[in-house]
Amino acid sequence: MNIFRLAGDMTHLASVLVLLLKIHTIKSCAGISLKTQELYALVFATRYLDLFTDYISLYNTLMKLIFLVSSFSIVWYIRHHKIVRRSYDKDQDTFRHYFLVLPCFLLALVINEKFTVKEIMWTFSLYLEAVAILPQLVLLQRTRNIDNLTGQYVFLLGAYRSLYILNWIYRYFTEPHYVHWITWISGLVQTLLYADFFYYYFQSWKNNVKLELPA
């Protein structure tokens, strides 16, 4: 464990907590894409298959449980909670996210480190996570007015993967034979997808104006 990875995990945890806090306290999911949340639930479900078979550390197991429980409860809130579901704008959240799942799965079948079920599911979860934010970014561009919590949520989600890139660089130089091209490239693609959001987020923060994304 290194400081970049710990900071990345804490940032990721913060993004999930910000979202849960928003939904639980103000009972609203306005501006949140259910599709992105469903994709993230699928990402964690396929990545943490080894939750009960490979014990790495208490921290690792605990965080996996937190991410699994939080992502599925967010999906439940938006789909089934009698008040929250009313604020879900399904007419705007129209990204056909199922079109992301199949290509990622096919790609994982072709490009992976080991042709085993667990490894293919793990690789699939990496590719899927890289594109999971797309429905949310499309929704942000459509709804224009981004409330602070949603903006912070997306920012933290992008920031965590950027910190992970620093972690991969650190591990590459400190641990011999630590090479995971698939992880690195999908993590880089994921972070690049946030690039323009970061730019507008930083501009709004610097000029102290409300965050607006160009249509």
């Binding site: 990721h12 080894d50 790495i56 965080m63 991410f67 480190e113 080991k114 490894e119 992970y164 972690n167």
Partner: peptide, 10 residues
């Protein structure tokens, strides 16, 4: 202890 290419990151 980590087996082979088991993934230790979240």
């Amino acid at each position: 202890t980590q087996k082979g290419s088991c993934h230790d990151e979240l």
